Computed example of a mutant assay.
Amino acid sequence: MSTRIIHGTGVLSGLGDTTTELGLRNVLVITDQNITPQAFYSAATSSLSAAGVAVNVYDGCGIDAHLAEVDELAARVRRDGIDGIIAIGGGSAMCVGKAVAIVATNPPSFRDCAGVASFTNRALKMIMIPTTAGSGAEVSQFTLVKDDENETKFVGGGPLSFPDVAVLDPEVLSGIPPRLAAVSAVDALSHAVEAMFTEFATPLTDGLATTAVSLLFRSAPAAILERNEAACTENLLGSAIANMACGNARLGLAHALSLPLEAQHHLPHGYGVGVLLPHVLAFNAPIAAPKVRQLALAFGVREQERPDEDVLAGVIAAIRSFYDRIDFPQSFAGLLDEPSCLNAVARAAVPGLYGTGSTGNISDASEIASPNIRQARVSDAEDIYRACFSTH
Protein backbone atom coordinates (compact mmCIF):
# COMPACT_ATOMS: atom_id res chain seq x y z
CA MET A 1 0.00 0.00 0.00
CA SER A 2 1.54 3.28 -1.13
CA THR A 3 -0.97 5.60 0.55
CA ARG A 4 0.40 8.11 3.05
CA ILE A 5 -1.83 8.33 6.13
CA ILE A 6 -2.14 11.55 8.11
CA HIS A 7 -4.25 11.23 11.26
CA GLY A 8 -5.18 13.14 14.37
CA THR A 9 -7.38 15.97 15.55
CA GLY A 10 -7.03 19.06 13.39
CA VAL A 11 -4.92 17.55 10.59
CA LEU A 12 -7.55 18.59 8.03
CA SER A 13 -6.43 22.21 8.47
CA GLY A 14 -3.21 21.32 6.64
CA LEU A 15 -5.00 20.11 3.51
CA GLY A 16 -3.70 22.99 1.38
CA ASP A 17 -0.07 22.20 2.18
CA THR A 18 -0.64 18.48 1.65
CA THR A 19 -2.16 19.19 -1.75
CA THR A 20 0.62 21.46 -2.97
CA GLU A 21 3.23 18.95 -1.76
CA LEU A 22 1.74 16.59 -4.36
CA GLY A 23 2.20 19.27 -7.01
CA LEU A 24 -1.53 19.83 -7.46
CA ARG A 25 -2.85 23.23 -8.50
CA ASN A 26 -6.29 22.59 -10.00
CA VAL A 27 -8.37 20.00 -8.15
CA LEU A 28 -11.87 18.58 -8.32
CA VAL A 29 -13.44 18.19 -4.87
CA ILE A 30 -15.96 15.34 -4.94
CA THR A 31 -18.50 15.32 -2.12
CA ASP A 32 -22.23 15.45 -1.38
CA GLN A 33 -24.74 18.05 -0.29
CA ASN A 34 -24.79 16.78 3.29
CA ILE A 35 -21.09 17.56 3.58
CA THR A 36 -20.86 21.01 1.97
CA PRO A 37 -22.70 22.88 4.81
CA GLN A 38 -20.33 21.41 7.44
CA ALA A 39 -17.74 23.61 9.11
CA PHE A 40 -14.94 21.13 8.41
CA TYR A 41 -15.73 21.28 4.68
CA SER A 42 -15.43 25.06 4.65
CA ALA A 43 -12.16 24.80 6.57
CA ALA A 44 -10.84 22.27 4.05
CA THR A 45 -11.68 24.32 0.97
CA SER A 46 -10.41 27.50 2.61
CA SER A 47 -7.11 25.76 3.28
CA LEU A 48 -6.91 24.80 -0.40
CA SER A 49 -7.65 28.34 -1.58
CA ALA A 50 -5.13 29.82 0.86
CA ALA A 51 -2.49 27.52 -0.64
CA GLY A 52 -3.25 28.80 -4.13
CA VAL A 53 -5.09 25.69 -5.28
CA ALA A 54 -7.99 26.20 -7.71
CA VAL A 55 -11.06 24.41 -6.33
CA ASN A 56 -13.72 22.88 -8.58
CA VAL A 57 -16.61 21.16 -6.80
CA TYR A 58 -18.95 18.28 -7.59
CA ASP A 59 -21.42 17.77 -4.74
CA GLY A 60 -23.88 15.42 -6.44
CA CYS A 61 -22.79 12.13 -4.85
CA GLY A 62 -25.58 9.95 -3.50
CA ILE A 63 -25.77 6.34 -2.43
CA ASP A 64 -23.22 4.37 -4.47
CA ALA A 65 -20.91 5.53 -7.23
CA HIS A 66 -22.72 5.32 -10.57
CA LEU A 67 -21.11 4.45 -13.91
CA ALA A 68 -22.63 7.32 -15.90
CA GLU A 69 -21.70 9.81 -13.17
CA VAL A 70 -18.10 8.60 -13.06
CA ASP A 71 -17.60 8.68 -16.83
CA GLU A 72 -19.13 12.16 -17.12
CA LEU A 73 -16.91 13.55 -14.35
CA ALA A 74 -13.80 11.95 -15.84
CA ALA A 75 -14.55 13.67 -19.14
CA ARG A 76 -14.90 16.98 -17.24
CA VAL A 77 -11.53 16.40 -15.55
CA ARG A 78 -9.79 15.87 -18.88
CA ARG A 79 -11.58 18.83 -20.51
CA ASP A 80 -10.82 21.30 -17.71
CA GLY A 81 -7.20 20.34 -17.10
CA ILE A 82 -7.83 19.19 -13.54
CA ASP A 83 -4.69 17.60 -12.08
CA GLY A 84 -6.00 15.93 -8.93
CA ILE A 85 -9.02 14.58 -7.08
CA ILE A 86 -9.97 15.27 -3.46
CA ALA A 87 -12.88 13.18 -2.20
CA ILE A 88 -14.56 14.32 1.02
CA GLY A 89 -17.30 11.99 2.21
CA GLY A 90 -18.24 8.42 2.92
CA GLY A 91 -17.54 5.33 0.86
CA SER A 92 -19.73 6.41 -2.04
CA ALA A 93 -17.99 9.77 -2.53
CA MET A 94 -14.58 8.15 -2.23
CA CYS A 95 -15.53 5.45 -4.72
CA VAL A 96 -16.65 8.16 -7.15
CA GLY A 97 -13.37 9.99 -6.59
CA LYS A 98 -11.20 6.94 -7.16
CA ALA A 99 -13.15 5.81 -10.20
CA VAL A 100 -12.93 9.28 -11.75
CA ALA A 101 -9.17 9.36 -11.07
CA ILE A 102 -8.80 6.00 -12.85
CA VAL A 103 -10.89 6.89 -15.91
CA ALA A 104 -9.30 10.34 -16.20
CA THR A 105 -6.06 8.65 -17.27
CA ASN A 106 -7.59 5.49 -18.74
CA PRO A 107 -10.52 6.67 -20.90
CA PRO A 108 -13.19 6.33 -22.04
CA SER A 109 -15.22 4.44 -19.39
CA PHE A 110 -14.86 2.81 -16.01
CA ARG A 111 -16.52 -0.21 -17.59
CA ASP A 112 -13.24 -0.76 -19.45
CA CYS A 113 -11.36 -0.71 -16.13
CA ALA A 114 -13.43 -3.43 -14.43
CA GLY A 115 -11.58 -6.23 -12.68
CA VAL A 116 -8.19 -6.37 -11.04
CA ALA A 117 -5.31 -4.37 -12.59
CA SER A 118 -7.04 -4.15 -15.97
CA PHE A 119 -5.75 -0.68 -16.91
CA THR A 120 -2.27 0.54 -17.76
CA ASN A 121 -1.95 4.17 -16.65
CA ARG A 122 -1.50 5.45 -13.10
CA ALA A 123 -4.67 7.08 -11.80
CA LEU A 124 -4.75 10.82 -11.33
CA LYS A 125 -3.30 11.94 -8.00
CA MET A 126 -5.89 11.86 -5.24
CA ILE A 127 -6.48 12.67 -1.60
CA MET A 128 -9.19 10.86 0.34
CA ILE A 129 -10.89 12.40 3.39
CA PRO A 130 -13.34 9.93 4.97
CA THR A 131 -16.25 11.46 6.86
CA THR A 132 -17.47 8.07 8.07
CA ALA A 133 -15.51 5.34 9.83
CA GLY A 134 -16.61 2.49 7.62
CA SER A 135 -15.56 1.76 4.07
CA GLY A 136 -11.83 2.32 4.47
CA ALA A 137 -11.87 3.32 0.80
CA GLU A 138 -9.28 5.96 1.60
CA VAL A 139 -6.52 3.30 1.69
CA SER A 140 -7.90 0.89 -0.90
CA GLN A 141 -6.74 0.27 -4.45
CA PHE A 142 -10.25 -0.90 -5.39
CA THR A 143 -13.47 0.98 -6.05
CA LEU A 144 -17.03 -0.27 -6.45
CA VAL A 145 -19.34 1.22 -9.09
CA LYS A 146 -22.99 0.58 -9.91
CA ASP A 147 -24.12 0.10 -13.51
CA ASP A 148 -27.76 1.20 -13.30
CA GLU A 149 -28.52 0.20 -16.87
CA ASN A 150 -27.62 -3.45 -16.24
CA GLU A 151 -28.52 -3.53 -12.52
CA THR A 152 -25.05 -4.73 -11.54
CA LYS A 153 -22.19 -3.56 -9.37
CA PHE A 154 -18.60 -4.22 -10.27
CA VAL A 155 -15.12 -3.63 -8.89
CA GLY A 156 -12.16 -2.02 -10.60
CA GLY A 157 -8.72 -1.18 -9.33
CA GLY A 158 -5.19 -2.30 -8.81
CA PRO A 159 -1.79 -1.09 -7.63
CA LEU A 160 -2.00 1.89 -10.00
CA SER A 161 -5.04 3.30 -8.18
CA PHE A 162 -4.05 3.59 -4.54
CA PRO A 163 -4.90 7.06 -3.19
CA ASP A 164 -1.82 9.18 -2.61
CA VAL A 165 -2.91 10.53 0.78
CA ALA A 166 -5.60 9.65 3.33
CA VAL A 167 -6.48 12.35 5.88
CA LEU A 168 -8.10 10.95 9.03
CA ASP A 169 -9.40 13.74 11.26
CA PRO A 170 -11.92 12.76 13.99
CA GLU A 171 -13.51 16.20 13.81
CA VAL A 172 -15.32 15.16 10.61
CA LEU A 173 -17.35 12.58 12.57
CA SER A 174 -18.97 15.18 14.81
CA GLY A 175 -22.08 15.66 12.69
CA ILE A 176 -22.67 12.17 11.35
CA PRO A 177 -26.15 10.78 12.23
CA PRO A 178 -25.96 7.82 14.64
CA ARG A 179 -27.68 5.40 12.23
CA LEU A 180 -25.22 6.16 9.44
CA ALA A 181 -22.32 5.93 11.88
CA ALA A 182 -23.57 2.51 13.01
CA VAL A 183 -23.87 1.18 9.46
CA SER A 184 -20.38 2.48 8.70
CA ALA A 185 -18.89 0.82 11.78
CA VAL A 186 -20.42 -2.53 10.85
CA ASP A 187 -19.10 -2.16 7.30
CA ALA A 188 -15.59 -1.69 8.72
CA LEU A 189 -16.00 -4.63 11.08
CA SER A 190 -17.09 -6.84 8.18
CA HIS A 191 -13.92 -5.92 6.26
CA ALA A 192 -11.73 -7.01 9.16
CA VAL A 193 -13.59 -10.26 9.87
CA GLU A 194 -13.92 -11.26 6.20
CA ALA A 195 -10.20 -10.68 5.62
CA MET A 196 -9.40 -13.45 8.10
CA PHE A 197 -11.44 -16.07 6.23
CA THR A 198 -10.04 -15.98 2.71
CA GLU A 199 -7.50 -18.16 0.96
CA PHE A 200 -5.16 -15.16 0.71
CA ALA A 201 -5.05 -14.43 4.45
CA THR A 202 -1.60 -14.47 6.06
CA PRO A 203 -0.28 -13.84 9.59
CA LEU A 204 0.38 -10.26 8.44
CA THR A 205 -3.19 -9.62 7.29
CA ASP A 206 -4.59 -11.46 10.31
CA GLY A 207 -2.59 -9.12 12.54
CA LEU A 208 -4.11 -6.12 10.78
CA ALA A 209 -7.59 -7.64 10.92
CA THR A 210 -7.54 -8.51 14.62
CA THR A 211 -6.13 -5.08 15.48
CA ALA A 212 -8.98 -3.49 13.54
CA VAL A 213 -11.58 -5.70 15.22
CA SER A 214 -10.28 -4.76 18.67
CA LEU A 215 -10.22 -1.04 17.86
CA LEU A 216 -13.69 -1.01 16.32
CA PHE A 217 -15.31 -3.23 18.94
CA ARG A 218 -14.19 -1.05 21.84
CA SER A 219 -14.40 2.39 20.20
CA ALA A 220 -17.43 2.41 17.88
CA PRO A 221 -20.19 2.61 20.54
CA ALA A 222 -18.52 5.54 22.31
CA ALA A 223 -17.78 7.24 18.99
CA ILE A 224 -21.35 6.80 17.77
CA LEU A 225 -23.32 7.43 20.94
CA GLU A 226 -21.08 9.85 22.86
CA ARG A 227 -19.02 11.53 20.11
CA ASN A 228 -15.96 10.84 22.25
CA GLU A 229 -12.93 12.30 20.45
CA ALA A 230 -10.47 9.54 21.39
CA ALA A 231 -13.03 6.91 20.36
CA CYS A 232 -13.62 8.68 17.05
CA THR A 233 -9.88 8.67 16.38
CA GLU A 234 -9.67 4.93 17.10
CA ASN A 235 -12.76 4.33 14.99
CA LEU A 236 -11.23 6.03 11.93
CA LEU A 237 -7.95 4.17 12.39
CA GLY A 238 -9.79 0.86 12.84
CA SER A 239 -11.69 1.43 9.63
CA ALA A 240 -8.50 2.16 7.68
CA ILE A 241 -6.64 -0.81 9.17
CA ALA A 242 -9.56 -3.12 8.36
CA ASN A 243 -9.31 -2.13 4.72
CA MET A 244 -5.55 -2.66 4.73
CA ALA A 245 -6.31 -6.21 5.83
CA CYS A 246 -8.96 -6.94 3.22
CA GLY A 247 -7.09 -5.01 0.54
CA ASN A 248 -4.40 -7.67 0.77
CA ALA A 249 -6.41 -10.74 1.79
CA ARG A 250 -9.51 -9.76 -0.23
CA LEU A 251 -13.14 -10.08 0.89
CA GLY A 252 -15.17 -13.20 1.37
CA LEU A 253 -18.65 -14.61 1.04
CA ALA A 254 -20.62 -11.91 2.87
CA HIS A 255 -19.55 -9.35 0.29
CA ALA A 256 -20.20 -11.68 -2.62
CA LEU A 257 -23.72 -12.45 -1.36
CA SER A 258 -24.52 -8.83 -0.58
CA LEU A 259 -23.77 -7.71 -4.13
CA PRO A 260 -26.99 -8.88 -5.88
CA LEU A 261 -29.11 -7.52 -3.02
CA GLU A 262 -27.44 -4.14 -3.46
CA ALA A 263 -27.59 -4.10 -7.27
CA GLN A 264 -31.06 -5.57 -7.84
CA HIS A 265 -32.91 -4.75 -4.61
CA HIS A 266 -31.17 -1.48 -3.66
CA LEU A 267 -30.11 -2.65 -0.20
CA PRO A 268 -27.46 -0.31 1.24
CA HIS A 269 -24.08 -2.02 1.32
CA GLY A 270 -23.46 -1.78 5.07
CA TYR A 271 -26.78 -3.43 5.91
CA GLY A 272 -26.13 -6.21 3.41
CA VAL A 273 -22.71 -7.28 4.62
CA GLY A 274 -23.54 -6.65 8.28
CA VAL A 275 -26.60 -8.90 8.43
CA LEU A 276 -24.82 -11.58 6.40
CA LEU A 277 -21.65 -11.53 8.49
CA PRO A 278 -22.64 -13.76 11.47
CA HIS A 279 -24.24 -16.31 9.14
CA VAL A 280 -21.20 -16.45 6.87
CA LEU A 281 -18.95 -16.78 9.91
CA ALA A 282 -21.00 -19.79 11.03
CA PHE A 283 -20.72 -21.24 7.50
CA ASN A 284 -16.92 -20.89 7.55
CA ALA A 285 -16.37 -22.09 11.11
CA PRO A 286 -16.36 -25.89 10.52
CA ILE A 287 -13.13 -25.65 8.53
CA ALA A 288 -11.60 -22.64 10.28
CA ALA A 289 -11.73 -23.31 14.03
CA PRO A 290 -8.26 -21.81 14.75
CA LYS A 291 -9.25 -18.60 12.98
CA VAL A 292 -12.46 -18.40 15.00
CA ARG A 293 -10.42 -18.72 18.20
CA GLN A 294 -8.09 -15.97 17.03
CA LEU A 295 -11.09 -13.78 16.27
CA ALA A 296 -12.55 -14.56 19.69
CA LEU A 297 -9.50 -13.05 21.39
CA ALA A 298 -9.90 -9.87 19.34
CA PHE A 299 -13.51 -9.60 20.54
CA GLY A 300 -12.46 -10.28 24.11
CA VAL A 301 -14.21 -13.67 24.22
CA ARG A 302 -12.28 -15.70 26.80
CA GLU A 303 -13.50 -19.22 26.09
CA GLN A 304 -10.35 -20.69 24.58
CA GLU A 305 -10.56 -23.90 26.61
CA ARG A 306 -14.10 -24.66 25.54
CA PRO A 307 -15.20 -26.69 22.49
CA ASP A 308 -15.05 -25.07 19.06
CA GLU A 309 -18.81 -24.63 18.84
CA ASP A 310 -18.85 -22.74 22.15
CA VAL A 311 -16.11 -20.39 20.98
CA LEU A 312 -18.05 -19.74 17.76
CA ALA A 313 -21.22 -19.08 19.77
CA GLY A 314 -19.29 -16.61 21.92
CA VAL A 315 -17.99 -14.71 18.89
CA ILE A 316 -21.42 -14.53 17.27
CA ALA A 317 -22.92 -13.39 20.57
CA ALA A 318 -20.27 -10.65 20.76
CA ILE A 319 -21.10 -9.48 17.23
CA ARG A 320 -24.83 -9.46 17.94
CA SER A 321 -24.30 -7.62 21.22
CA PHE A 322 -22.24 -5.04 19.33
CA TYR A 323 -25.10 -4.66 16.84
CA ASP A 324 -27.59 -4.17 19.67
CA ARG A 325 -25.42 -1.53 21.37
CA ILE A 326 -25.31 0.61 18.21
CA ASP A 327 -28.89 -0.19 17.10
CA PHE A 328 -27.96 -2.15 13.99
CA PRO A 329 -30.54 -4.64 12.61
CA GLN A 330 -30.03 -8.36 13.09
CA SER A 331 -31.94 -9.49 9.98
CA PHE A 332 -33.15 -8.26 6.61
CA ALA A 333 -36.73 -8.23 7.90
CA GLY A 334 -37.86 -4.62 7.80
CA LEU A 335 -34.99 -3.56 5.54
CA LEU A 336 -36.35 -5.02 2.31
CA ASP A 337 -39.10 -7.35 1.19
CA GLU A 338 -37.95 -10.93 0.89
CA PRO A 339 -37.46 -11.70 -2.82
CA SER A 340 -40.02 -14.16 -4.17
CA CYS A 341 -37.21 -16.44 -5.33
CA LEU A 342 -34.11 -16.53 -3.14
CA ASN A 343 -32.64 -19.12 -5.48
CA ALA A 344 -32.57 -16.50 -8.23
CA VAL A 345 -30.71 -14.09 -5.94
CA ALA A 346 -28.24 -16.83 -5.04
CA ARG A 347 -27.63 -17.55 -8.74
CA ALA A 348 -27.01 -13.86 -9.34
CA ALA A 349 -24.22 -14.04 -6.75
CA VAL A 350 -22.23 -16.61 -8.74
CA PRO A 351 -19.99 -14.11 -10.61
CA GLY A 352 -18.77 -12.85 -7.24
CA LEU A 353 -17.48 -9.51 -6.04
CA TYR A 354 -14.60 -9.50 -8.49
CA GLY A 355 -16.65 -10.69 -11.47
CA THR A 356 -14.60 -13.82 -12.08
CA GLY A 357 -17.36 -16.44 -11.87
CA SER A 358 -19.51 -18.07 -14.51
CA THR A 359 -22.48 -16.22 -16.00
CA GLY A 360 -23.99 -19.13 -17.95
CA ASN A 361 -25.39 -22.60 -17.20
CA ILE A 362 -25.80 -21.83 -13.51
CA SER A 363 -27.34 -24.51 -11.28
CA ASP A 364 -27.77 -25.11 -7.54
CA ALA A 365 -24.35 -26.81 -7.59
CA SER A 366 -22.59 -23.80 -9.16
CA GLU A 367 -19.87 -22.27 -7.00
CA ILE A 368 -19.96 -18.65 -5.84
CA ALA A 369 -16.80 -16.99 -7.13
CA SER A 370 -15.01 -15.85 -4.00
CA PRO A 371 -11.65 -16.31 -2.26
CA ASN A 372 -13.72 -17.29 0.79
CA ILE A 373 -11.93 -19.98 2.82
CA ARG A 374 -14.85 -22.39 2.38
CA GLN A 375 -16.34 -22.79 -1.07
CA ALA A 376 -20.07 -22.02 -1.22
CA ARG A 377 -22.51 -23.20 -3.84
CA VAL A 378 -25.79 -21.65 -4.94
CA SER A 379 -27.69 -23.97 -2.57
CA ASP A 380 -25.52 -22.81 0.36
CA ALA A 381 -26.09 -19.18 -0.56
CA GLU A 382 -29.84 -19.71 -0.69
CA ASP A 383 -29.76 -21.21 2.83
CA ILE A 384 -27.74 -18.26 4.14
CA TYR A 385 -30.13 -15.74 2.57
CA ARG A 386 -33.10 -17.54 4.11
CA ALA A 387 -31.51 -17.40 7.55
CA CYS A 388 -30.90 -13.66 7.13
CA PHE A 389 -34.61 -13.03 6.55
CA SER A 390 -35.52 -14.81 9.78
CA THR A 391 -35.83 -12.63 12.85
CA HIS A 392 -33.00 -13.14 15.32
Rank of each mutant, 00 (worst) to 15 (best):
D80Y: 15
N121S: 11
T131L: 12
A43W: 11
S109N: 11
D310W: 08
A75Y: 09
G60V: 09
A137R: 06
A39T: 11
G136C: 02
I35N: 10
G91S: 01
K146R: 14
M94C: 09
V292S: 01
R227M: 10
L267I: 10
A166F: 11
I319K: 04
E234S: 14
C232V: 02
A223G: 15
V11K: 12
A242E: 04
P178C: 08
T391E: 07
Q264D: 13
D169F: 01
I373K: 10
T152K: 12
E303L: 15
L259P: 07
L24E: 10
V55R: 08
H191E: 06
S184P: 07
D80E: 15
P260W: 00
F299L: 03
Q294L: 11
P290R: 05
V378H: 10
A188K: 07
N343P: 06
S214Y: 08
V116G: 00
L281E: 13
N343V: 08
R4F: 12
R377E: 13
A114C: 12
G238E: 04
V57G: 06
I86C: 13
V350C: 00
R218S: 14
L180S: 09
A381C: 07
L124V: 05
E151I: 05
D187A: 01
A117G: 05
V77P: 01
Q304K: 06
A245E: 07
A133K: 03
S161I: 06
D380V: 11
G357W: 00
A254V: 00
F197V: 01
G175R: 09
G314K: 01
G90M: 03
S190M: 00
I6V: 15
V57K: 08
T143L: 10
L342C: 02
S2P: 13
I384R: 05
A263V: 04
D206G: 02
A242W: 02
V145T: 07
V186T: 09
V172I: 12
L295W: 02
A117E: 14
S370G: 10
A39F: 13
I6F: 05
A240D: 13
G158T: 07
H191G: 05
E226W: 08
E226A: 15
V145I: 11
A333V: 04
E69Q: 15
C388N: 03
L160R: 15
G81C: 04
F200I: 00
V165Q: 13
V275P: 02
E305M: 13
A387T: 06
V311E: 06
T131W: 05
R306N: 05
G270E: 08
E262P: 02
V77Q: 03
A99F: 01
D364W: 06
V53D: 07
A242L: 03
V172T: 13
G158N: 10
L336D: 07
D83M: 09
Y271F: 14
